[in-house]
Amino acid sequence: MGEIVNLNKARKARDKAEAKRTADANRLTFGRTKAERQTTQKERDRGAARLDGHRLDDAKDD
């Protein structure tokens, strides 16, 4: 016969584990210093500018 499980405790444990995963993800996303955020933004901007600089013009000669 199977093990007897308190469904209320199982539900709370599941919710607690999900909250921990969400908190870990938020720490990665929001848990950075202002300098780190600015550095990342500058790198993104630099990459976008470089990509835009390598685009070919879509000029039509009609």
Rank of each mutant, 00 (worst) to 15 (best):
E3S: 04
R37M: 04
F30W: 08
D61E: 09
D58G: 07
D52E: 09
R44L: 07
D52H: 06
R27W: 13
L51Y: 12
L51R: 00
A10Y: 00
A17R: 10
K42C: 06
M1R: 01
T29Q: 15
R27H: 14
A59W: 13
A48L: 14
D24I: 10
A49C: 04
D58F: 05
L56F: 08
R27T: 04
A23R: 13
T40C: 04
E36V: 00
R44C: 07
R14T: 13
R46K: 10
G53K: 00
N6A: 00
N8T: 03
A48P: 02
E43D: 09
A49R: 14
L51K: 03
A17D: 09
D62L: 10
R37P: 01
A25M: 12
A59V: 12
H54T: 04
L7Q: 10
A13W: 01
K42L: 11
G47C: 03
K42P: 01
N6Q: 04
R50V: 11
D45Y: 11
D24W: 08
A59L: 12
Q41W: 07
E43A: 12
K16W: 07
R32L: 10
E36F: 04
N26D: 12
K20V: 10
D62T: 09
D58C: 06
R37T: 02
Q38E: 11
E18G: 07
D58S: 07
I4Y: 01
Q41A: 06
R55P: 01
M1G: 05
K12I: 08
A19M: 08
A17C: 06
A59P: 09
A59T: 13
T39R: 08
K16G: 03
D52V: 08
A13Y: 00
L28R: 13
D61H: 08
A49E: 12
A48R: 02
A25R: 15
Q41F: 07
K12N: 12
R21K: 14
I4W: 01
N26H: 14
F30N: 05
T33I: 10
R44S: 10
L7N: 02
T39E: 06
A35T: 13
L7G: 04
R21D: 14
A13C: 03
R37A: 00
D24H: 10
K20Q: 15
R14E: 04
N26F: 14
R11Q: 14
D24T: 11
D45E: 15
E36I: 01
M1A: 06
R14K: 04
K12P: 02
H54P: 03
G2L: 07
D15Y: 09
L56T: 14
K9H: 11
A23C: 07
A13T: 03
K9I: 00
G2P: 03
E43P: 00
T33Y: 02
A13K: 06
N26P: 08
D61R: 08
V5P: 02
G31Y: 03
R14Q: 02
E43C: 07
K42H: 15
N6V: 01
N26E: 11
T29W: 08
R11I: 02
E18D: 11
F30C: 04
L28Q: 14
N8I: 12
L56A: 07
E18V: 10
G31W: 00
R14L: 05
R21I: 09
R46S: 05
T29H: 13
N26L: 14
E18K: 14
A49M: 08
N26G: 09
L56N: 14
R11N: 13
